[in-house]
């Protein structure tokens, strides 16, 4: 039995401690927004946040995240209001859409630490997330767009 805190809610997971977080989320908790793409931390589709850091849940045993704050795409915002989600919609980023949860979760950590990312900064983080449909240019535009929103929000608040 492993206790996990996911999107502010507590869950008791009946599984072997070596089970990757991805499968606990999908098969035990029923949160399907986090995707399986490769199982070996190569594609980024399974990206979630653990204590605010981007983590590939497909290679993270549940034993390693006990007691930590886990956030999945479902917990990023209750209403599509995160600047990245807004930008994703404005730029019409997704095609098949399968990789986009992971793309957004990676980008969210990037934006939190860097609200004025250059193209190179974006490459440094987003190169870890594969999109086979080739939405990369739109992802880039959406991140720039969301960064603008974040900067404006900060200005308005100061």
């Amino acid at each position: 039995m492993v206790q996990l805190k996911i999107n502010q809610k507590k869950y008791e997971i009946e599984a072997d401690k070596s089970m990757p977080l991805l499968w606990a989320l999908r098969d035990k908790v029923g949160l399907n927004g986090t995707k399986f793409g490769c199982g070996v931390a190569q594609c980024g589709a399974c990206t979630v946040h653990v204590d605010g850091e981007a983590v590939r849940s497909c290679v993270t045993p549940i034993s390693a995240v006990e007691g930590k704050e886990i956030t999945t795409i479902e917990g990023l915002s209750p209403d599509l209001s995160h600047p990245l989600q807004q930008a994703w919609i404005a730029e019409d980023v997704p095609q098949c859409g399968y990789c986009q949860s992971g793309q957004i979760m990676s980008a969210a950590v990037l934006l939190k630490h860097n609200d004025q990312p250059t193209d190179e900064d974006i490459n440094d983080v987003m190169t870890g997330n594969i999109c086979r449909c080739g939405t990369y240019n739109r992802i880039r535009r959406a991140i720039h767009q969301a960064a603008k929103t974040v900067r404006k929000q900060k200005e308005d608040n100061s």
């Binding site: 949160l31 399907n32 927004g33 986090t34 999945t72 795409i73 479902e74 990023l76 915002s77 599509l80 990245l84 989600q85 994703w88 919609i89 019409d92 980023v93 997704p94 859409g97 986009q100 949860s101 957004i104």
Partner: peptide, 9 residues
């Protein structure tokens, strides 16, 4: 289909 492809639904 964009909204539901940006929130995991």
């Amino acid at each position: 289909d964009t909204p539901e492809k940006t929130n995991g639904q």
